[in-house]
Amino acid sequence: MTARATEAVGRSNDAADGAFLDIATNTLAVLIVVLATRLLSLEAAPTDQSIEPADSPPTLVFPVMTDQLFRPFTNVYLAAEDRIVLLDLGPAVSALQERGLRTGTVPQGDFELKVEPRVIRDINTFHFELTPDADYVRTSGIDVTPDTLPEIVAGLEHDFRERRVAPTFAVRTSGMDAFARLYPAVLERGIPIRWIPFDDNRPIAFSRSHGNLQHPSFYW
């Protein structure tokens, strides 16, 4: 009885040793797998596949937004008459809502809303045009000079860092000089910015159509 008991205990000892070895090898295997996974996902690359980092610090950084996961909100600015002015569409939108009109005049200028008459797709297609008032731009806008430039850039940076609002500029030929002074300074601060030139005889247009979703052409 004693011999069998000792034998049984000895077998369970070997079993215990074998089990202990199994535990140790399995822990090692888990460790290897976890570390390997960590190594493979080590690349500190941005999420966008079309960003290929340069081999050395670039002399002229290509202005593209590297963090494309969450596109920023946008404020629309107008660059005209050597001034920069925030294009506030609030008054125009209020006029459209309250009075139910399709055209009108607000301090920012004349506006017109064209809506797609037949609903073909599940998207509200519209075309909104604003002809900015030159006097409004001259009185409400800021000129871009070496004195005002830091303040403007600081304001844009604050908007982007605090509220993730990035600027979109509608630029007319009369505002090109002012904007050309502002653009490199904004890029230097790492603020995403996009801009569209508008001819002087065309209104500033905002539109939505299904083409926007099928052929996106205006990236950050």
């Binding site: 080590l42 690349e43 690359a45 980092p53 050395s56 670039p58 950084v61 290509f62």
Partner: peptide
């Protein structure tokens, strides 16, 4: 050695 590779923004 792998994390020492720097990441530069895109070039023109």
């Amino acid at each position: 050695t792998r994390s020492e590779r720097p990441f530069y923004p895109p070039d023109t």
